[in-house]
Amino acid sequence: MAKHEYAFYPGCSSQKGASASNYLTSVESMCKTLDVKLTEIPDWNCCGASIGYAEAGELPRHVLNARNFALSEKNLPGQEIVATCAACWLGARETRERLTHSDTLMADTREALKEAGLTINEMPEIRHMVEVLIEDLGFDEMAKHVVRPLEGVKIAGYVGCQTNRPFGVAGESFENPVYLDKMVEMVGAESIPEYEQKVTCCGGALAFSEPEKAQAQIKDIVESAYDHGAEMIVTPCPLCQANVEIYQGQINKRYGTKFDIPVMYYSQLMVVAYGGSAKDAALNGQVIKARRLEEIAAKPVKR
């Protein structure tokens, strides 16, 4: 039996061929090393994300998330739900909070769930993968597995919004969370605690609908990473990762900049530091290649 077991809510962007499929690959490799067992909630559905608000309404949005709770309770009783995506985690946690605090909303949700032959008896705990790493395993346990430290690599820890607000990770501040910097140090790289854009918004869904507004924000995030001498950016959020990485070409055209900085997931750094291959870390999933990490991943492991 694995040391830690959870019901897993991977989310739409993690699926095969989707925008954060490299995140899932690296999380799977990371969990193997850490002896964490994730069992996918059967037939899970989309959380609705924050951007669905025009049509979602209040109850339909919570019912959508509650269906995942019900499926988890039915198939994986007693297990906490773990999400890797910031939006999935936030959406599910918000629903948990609202249903817990309103008997009417809870009763209405139960009535709607009946239509899908489901019910909720107990409200599950909703965790983000970084909470599992920090709270259930801890930094010492995470560091134990480092066999190939990312020595001399300077990395800007970009936390973004939804992993940080409104819930965030316990004990961290909204304005200056430090856990990501600690994770960077943990894998043997050099962190930039004074990186002042670490909680700036990437523009979220506006990167699609009103790109000029989102790209103005992304420009600040990338520019500051360069100003601090970063070689790459690391983030815990799939939308932050995509937005900050894939529009750098368009930003260069718009502002005359020469951005070309890789944007990684914490799990990718950990897999490389844990001795995994470039494939285990899904480095082939980067649009802007992380050459330095590829080189390190090709090196033999120090045992």
Binding site: C12, G48, Y53, A54, E55, A205, S209
Partner: peptide
């Protein structure tokens, strides 16, 4: 308004099959 349009589109997209088709 583009974000109003996108917001409606997103909700329809994700509830149509239960998962987002990017």
């Amino acid at each position: 308004q583009p974000t109003r349009f996108f917001s409606g589109l997103f909700w329809k997209n994700c509830t149509h099959t239960g998962r987002v088709n990017e």
